[in-house]
Computed example of a mutant assay.
Amino acid sequence: MKRLSFAFFFSILFFAAFAQIQTGKASFYADKFEGSPTASGEKYKHNKLTGAHRSLPFGTKVKVTNTANNKSVEVIINDRGPWVESRIIDLSKSAAEELGFINQGVAEVQLEVLDPGDGKTSDPARTIDQVTVEDKEFYEFEITRTKPKGYGVQIGTYQELVNLMRLSDNLKNSYKKHVTVQVKVLNGLKYYGLILGKFPSREKAEQFKGELKNKFPDAFIVEYGRL
């Protein structure tokens, strides 16, 4: 078996505990998206209790509460979004109906993580986290805890550290960008958000995201100060 040996450098942005409660605005899918594929590979169905979140792993179960009427619903995250600045989740139409905000279009909600799920998608062809590992691989680390500023492009969220290491090294060599790993802890389980680049403006980050769209169509912009 071929032996691999190379230097692997990245910075870790570490959070001892990732907030399990989040507040903000919720919206819901328009009817035109019925049957369209989500970022996880599943098709959107208005009658299923699902949602889109920017960073929570696919399969995560969250409780969403409409703070105006105290109605709640439990949904499974299977898509990425929303991409409107003030919104934190897009819900299926049936979930929005249970929360009672179909007529308003948008509602103030609270999200609570109930189960972090397995982070996997229903379509193996779209699961970047599946990486073939050789029997013997060696990595050399130089790790720095950091508080980055500006913007980056998050490629995905992973559970297996070896997958993260191999993908991080490949991306660093391919795109010549700084690699940052955000460690999130959900219900005692660690997840690793892989972020490329440190850009001074959202515009610069958007330009770089455009370079990634063919290989990583689900990549999205993050602002380090808000993580």
Rank of each mutant, 00 (worst) to 15 (best):
Ala26Val: 03
Gln154Asn: 03
Thr121Pro: 06
Ala17His: 06
Val75Pro: 09
Asn69Pro: 09
Thr157Arg: 13
Phe18Val: 01
Gly193Lys: 11
Leu114Asp: 01
His178Asp: 15
Pro57Gly: 01
Asp90Asn: 14
Leu49Pro: 07
Lys190His: 14
Glu206Leu: 14
Gln182Cys: 05
Ala30Met: 05
Lys93Met: 03
Gly119Ala: 07
Phe199Gln: 08
Asn103Gln: 14
Asn173Ala: 08
Pro200Met: 09
Pro148Asn: 01
Ser55Leu: 13
Gln20Phe: 03
Arg87Tyr: 03
Phe18Asp: 04
Ser55Lys: 10
His53Glu: 02
Ser201Val: 03
Arg87His: 03
Gln154Tyr: 04
Gly197Val: 07
Ile143Lys: 15
Tyr192Arg: 02
Ile77Ala: 04
Gln182Thr: 10
Ala19Leu: 12
Arg226Cys: 04
Glu223Pro: 01
Ile128Met: 10
Ala17Phe: 06
Lys71Asn: 09
Lys176Thr: 07
Gln182Pro: 00
Gly100Met: 11
Gly150Ala: 12
Lys176Ala: 11
Ala7Trp: 08
Lys149Asn: 11
Glu142Asn: 14
Val222Pro: 13
Thr180Arg: 13
Glu74Ala: 06
Lys43Ile: 01
Asp169Trp: 12
Gln159His: 15
Ser40Lys: 06
Ser201Leu: 00
Phe208Leu: 02
Ile77Cys: 03
Leu171Lys: 04
Gly100Phe: 10
Pro82Tyr: 14
Tyr224Gln: 10
Lys43Gln: 02
Ile12Cys: 06
Gln22Arg: 15
Phe33Val: 05
Thr23Gln: 15
Val62Cys: 14
Glu206Tyr: 08
Gly51Asn: 00
His53Phe: 06
His46Gly: 03
Asn47Phe: 13
Gly188Phe: 09
Pro148Cys: 02
Leu13Asn: 05
Gly105Lys: 00
Lys184Trp: 05
Leu167Met: 06
Gly117Cys: 11
Lys136Leu: 05
Ser122Gln: 12
Phe138Ala: 01
Gln159Leu: 06
Ala107Trp: 07
Ile89Gln: 08
Gly188Lys: 08
Gln207Asn: 13
Lys215Ile: 10
Phe15Trp: 09
Ala96Glu: 12
Asn47Gly: 07
Glu97Gln: 14
Val131Asn: 10
Val109Pro: 01
Ala125Ser: 15
Ala30Asp: 14
Ala7Asp: 15
Thr132Asn: 14
Ser92Leu: 08
Asn47Ser: 15
Val181Glu: 06
Arg3Ser: 14
Ala16Lys: 15
Phe101Ser: 01
Val73Leu: 12
Ser5Ala: 02
Ser27Gln: 05
Tyr191Ile: 01
Phe8Asn: 13
Phe141Cys: 00
Phe6Thr: 13
Gly193Ile: 04
Glu34Gly: 01
Pro217Gln: 07
Lys213Phe: 05
Asn66Thr: 04
Tyr139Gln: 02
Lys172Asp: 03
Gly105Val: 04
Glu203His: 12
Thr67Ser: 12
